[in-house]
Nucleic acid binder design. Sequence first.
DNA 1: TATAATTATGTAAACGCTTACATTTTTAAT
DNA 2: ATTAAAAATGTAAGCGTTTACATAATTATA
Lengths: 332, 332
Amino acid sequence: MSNIVEVAKLAGVSTATVSRVVNGKGYVSEKTKKIVNQVIEELGYNPSKTASSLARRKKHKIAVVFSQRIINLEKSESHFFEKDGFYSIVYKGIKDKTDKYGIDLDILVLEKHPNPISDNYDGFLLVGGDFTIEDVEKYKLSKKPFVLIDQHLKGYSIDSVVSNGYDGAISCIDYLIKKGYQKIFHIHGPLSHYGFKDRFDGYMDGMKMYGFFPRTFLCDDINDDFNIIIPQIIRHTGMPDCIFAGNDNMAKKIMRYLISEGYKIPEDIALVGFDDMLFSSLMNPALSTVKVYKYEMGDLAVDRLRQLIYEEDIHPVKISLHTTFIKRDSCR
Amino acid sequence: MSNIVEVAKLAGVSTATVSRVVNGKGYVSEKTKKIVNQVIEELGYNPSKTASSLARRKKHKIAVVFSQRIINLEKSESHFFEKDGFYSIVYKGIKDKTDKYGIDLDILVLEKHPNPISDNYDGFLLVGGDFTIEDVEKYKLSKKPFVLIDQHLKGYSIDSVVSNGYDGAISCIDYLIKKGYQKIFHIHGPLSHYGFKDRFDGYMDGMKMYGFFPRTFLCDDINDDFNIIIPQIIRHTGMPDCIFAGNDNMAKKIMRYLISEGYKIPEDIALVGFDDMLFSSLMNPALSTVKVYKYEMGDLAVDRLRQLIYEEDIHPVKISLHTTFIKRDSCR
DNA sequence: TATAATTATGTAAACGCTTACATTTTTAAT
DNA sequence: ATTAAAAATGTAAGCGTTTACATAATTATA
């Protein structure tokens, strides 16, 4: 294994210069850049990450933290995710990007991981709506940068990458209303989850914008039995002409119920989801939904975290990825 | 973050001594050991892995390599395994042990991983029967230690951790014969896989030992349709009174066929598997099998690799974990 | 053309450990 | 009591980078 000294010697420059061309920062003339790169090529020089880590005081290693709930949800137990889950795709975006940058990645479970574990990582990716301000405070104490994915805490200046559910919901409602739907119900999950809250707000504003009466129903998106919930809602509030579900998983369960009760979709009742999961286009009828860019969320979050780690005086931002309404067969 | 120098200063010793107590090697008196540990405790000193890696020229990082076939087999696609597969449990053994030692672990796919990737790892764990001598030669070239898991290449002095299928098969055949079975057929997978070969040899020797005629049938354990294979075998060779399958997965498929054809197990025909998978005890009838210590294979392999990495002049060994016959309901 | 600003390169001190080797202390052997 | 061996500790040179700072070369400006 050749090292930076050999390269420097052969190229007739100092190690500092080699370091500069390798890392692409600082002034280097084109001429020397070329020479150095040539020597690097010849020697098959591979900079030592370890030495670099020591000198830079960076480990080139981050952790992605999931809540136990998410891990269970995506059915992992001993190792990891099924491939089709929402967060599984977010994770794929993360993993591909960290691989590309040569950043090591560990998976941590929020409820389990010991404190202070922060010594081992340059930063954290906190994934999912379960993160509370209390959780986040702990990471703040660690003085290591982190970014929230698919969660944002109102009133706190915390870096986050989320999907723009608000505008997605509005464009969806907009479409539905223009198609003549009037009694559009919104069935959503816990509003402590940013995703649900944002979609909720979009729905509300969308309905009000057109002067329609919004009707929303909170449920436990994971544990509730929709065969019980839906008839309850209908009994209390009357029959909607369209149900706008908080996500595709809920929409799936709702559809199952509706079909089992003999409703025709979309003739008797329309149904729209949110997320655009892999299964959504395969449902029968194919589910109209609002596409969330899950992979891109992961991808962007890594970029963001990298900036926070390697650059200084970065102002916190909330990155919101636009969503797109996808019309399929479950609505007119 | 405190460092070794602070600890040394406070403890009134040299950094060398601190290093010795931290790593538990070299001479240190009990007295100083106590003092140093106390200071470490007080300061919450956490040795820098990075610095240690640099000084030791070790990365504290290994890779576990699976073949694409195994990954597919255990249904992973984007991330990783289902939890119940054979290699999934081996992996769990590996993961727990590396976590314990603070060794980083990467998963690589044999067919995909670029060469030379060896710079990034201290060593390799090569998992599964798909590894050929050609594959292995590549790792030899890298000059990094590696150990084969669940595979052993005849005639080569390569470190490996396998299960003792030979004695397991013998004890199984021994049991069956003593129970009066005489026409015991063995249906096995490719003999290039050490596991199958070893069990095969055990079966052969066990049968011969009692003077019974062995009958063996090779099949593609993954792709073959047992609804076709089994009747073929019976037609050609006559009806066995017991089938000894190369592994539980095959036994499962065989049982499915036999039951569909109306055979009573074990009254009409007995069936025994190998591995003791999670599902085996849940089958109906519960499958008799030979338990393979999968978790322990992973666990031991890590220990072994660690020795190879950190100690010198280690003589190569083959570690063979004894198996145990488990009598359930699928045989007398 | 002289001077300032910009760009290019080099020097050398970190980063936080490990370890070969040297030295001192303790224990054992005679 | 002397000497040898074993045990304990220390010294200091690495490990392979990065980077603050200094210096030199080039380009722009007046």
